[in-house]
């Protein structure tokens, strides 16, 4: 189904990547669903480790971590998407992402169940997001792609942060960069 309208996309940056090189996505699982993020936005993948809790933060903000001198917030994606919570195991991983916000680039980590694969999106087709009544708010999804008979939801990582009502969108301090 995807072949026909392979280029209907919402994110211009991805389009650019696709045109020239084809975009690659890191896919991971979250409560039996598969998600993908633009691999260019992935800084690193780490195992879960204890974080420092931040007072009076929403429950999906697990806390902050020292990432080579920078203080980086860690979001739990299950909780962010209102999926069932799950105890962290040795497989639980944190995907560290570079996201752009109003004030510039920021680093954040997202907790996912496990990392699955790297998907080359030029081999597969991407469709725009249908208005499906799924559990995940469609505002975070930039497109869908099918691979190996599975449906993979591509995350718009910038919206992940900008849709967080608490995040400070104003001027910020760059001292940790």
């Amino acid at each position: 189904m995807a072949e026909a309208n392979a280029k209907i996309m919402t994110n211009p940056q991805e389009e650019e990547c696709l045109d020239e090189f084809g975009a690659q996505y890191l896919t991971f699982s979250l409560a039996d669903e598969e998600y993908g993020v633009d691999i260019l936005r992935v800084q690193e993948i780490r195992g879960w480790e204890t974080v420092t809790r931040v007072p009076n933060a929403p429950s999906y903000v697990k806390g902050v971590l020292n990432l080579r001198g920078s203080i980086v917030p860690i979001f739990d994606l299950r909780e962010r998407f209102n999926l069932a919570r799950q105890a962290y195991t040795k497989d639980t991983v944190v995907v560290v992402l570079r996201v752009t916000a109003a004030g510039g680039m920021r680093i954040m980590g997202v907790v996912v169940d496990a990392v699955s694969d790297v998907l080359n999106a030029s081999d597969d087709g991407i469709t725009s997001t249908p208005d499906f009544g799924g559990s995940v708010a469609t505002e975070f999804i930039s497109g869908l792609v099918s691979a190996g008979g599975k449906m993979i939801m591509l995350l718009d990582v910038d919206r992940l942060l900008s849709q967080d009502e608490g995040i400070d969108q104003g001027e910020r301090d760059h001292e940790d960069q």
Binding site: V54, P55, A57, I71, V72, R106, M108, G166, I167, D176
Partner: peptide
């Protein structure tokens, strides 16, 4: 270190 660099101001 700044919390705001990657997160936000916390009361």
């Amino acid at each position: 270190k700044s919390l705001e660099a990657n997160y936000r101001k916390v009361d």
